[in-house]
Design a protein around this nucleic acid. Sequence first.
DNA 1: CTTCCTATGTGCGATAACACACGTAGGAAG
DNA 2: CTTCCTACGTGTGTTATCGCACATAGGAAG
Lengths: 247, 247
Amino acid sequence: MQNTPKSDHNDAQRNIILGSLFDPEFSRVLAKLEPVTFNLGDVLYESGDVSKFAYFPTTAIISLLYIMENGATAEIGLVGNDGILGISLFMGGETTTNRAVVQSAGLGFKMNAKDVKAEFALCRKFQKVLLLYTQAFLTQISQTAVCNRLHSVEQQLCRWLLLSHDRLDSDKLVMTHDLISNMLGVRREGVTLAAQKLAKRKLIKNVRGTITVIDRIGLENAVCECYKVVNDEYERLLDNKLSRHFA
Amino acid sequence: MQNTPKSDHNDAQRNIILGSLFDPEFSRVLAKLEPVTFNLGDVLYESGDVSKFAYFPTTAIISLLYIMENGATAEIGLVGNDGILGISLFMGGETTTNRAVVQSAGLGFKMNAKDVKAEFALCRKFQKVLLLYTQAFLTQISQTAVCNRLHSVEQQLCRWLLLSHDRLDSDKLVMTHDLISNMLGVRREGVTLAAQKLAKRKLIKNVRGTITVIDRIGLENAVCECYKVVNDEYERLLDNKLSRHFA
DNA sequence: CTTCCTATGTGCGATAACACACGTAGGAAG
DNA sequence: CTTCCTACGTGTGTTATCGCACATAGGAAG
């Protein structure tokens, strides 16, 4: 079980929750982590599932979706190296009403539900950062609600691209319009139209199966205020230099 | 300062968070509460405010709104006797990005921010119920996001009426179409149209400044699934017999 | 009873997003 | 090179909601 080489240690710090811990807490938490590879489309939780694990992405992005009875979907929020998947474990509810899907393949770690709860109860710093993250995530969801109500598909696509870009190393988002439309809860054609407009403005490059960010600053100028509200709150609460703009 | 007569004691239990506590914790918490009267339109927090108090409504309803730069508004969620206003105090963020407005006048209690934090750290049961409530509230916001994305104004009005009705003693909602439109983030005319349709179906009565629920069951049949998702989660997490349907 | 403010009712053109249909093209597999 | 699946592009008509304009009516204050 002594499988925690130096590389894992460094990788774990790429996750902001884990990276906020110091020894001896960090080492103790690290000992309970297990590396995970997330593949595109993997379902980590289904609505109502009692999960055995919480997940700490480092390079992957996980999307939380609500699935309607008629099959329509809409994204609640997304989690990358800025957070943890499995809030309900330490909040006490055990389950949520969402599905968690891997939106962008990558790496991360998982931890037993039991260990998460134990550390949450035991370690002040761990508890504090998890609660702060939960508040930040709450802001993300809130702004998703606002944006869904008041903004155009094009603006929402901008916001979504920026939130995803912030959580990736690359400028390439391997992602079909169809998948994006499931996240945004709009038609595939709507995403195509919006992506074309952004491409025409030279903000992104739009080729089969991949959207490439070519003008990050331009995107930030094009997006609605919702992006900044969420980003500022993540920085404030998690001392998070997530945004490349401020990096 | 010995102003905690029997009536206050009973009133406090009407709030589900407070009502979930038992002596001696309940008495200790009660001693730190101060009765409050909430008047329609009162702003309890502004976006970014560090509040000195958390609020526990008993008969009032508080609405959390996001205000856009251009003045447009949209509701994130609402809090009545089922919850607490001031999640950011114990989550650690101190402020939120929302405005808290009294949507329906009534009574409740407030508690010093310092006392809230102290009790949260000290009292396991208090901490537990607050975190469970926060998860329930998170579900409410999530479903607001979904509903904003996928459902019609009429369905959203149904949901909003039911959520409000659940948190009131009366069948009369003292509320103009204009105010409702601010909550739902739609035009006043849109609310008028939707309310007329519901009135035509004999689900509500619609007179100047007041909407009266006359067929609760009918409304529950007319509403989208979002209402039930939220309601079920509140019941599951808070053992909450809030819904009159199940009362 | 009259005035006047506010809430509601209503109509109309504009727009964004929808549903559906079908054409085109990238690129892996044979 | 051809086949074929999938992703993307595009057109048409429909619908929900918007923005604006203005008419009506409840009801408190004088």
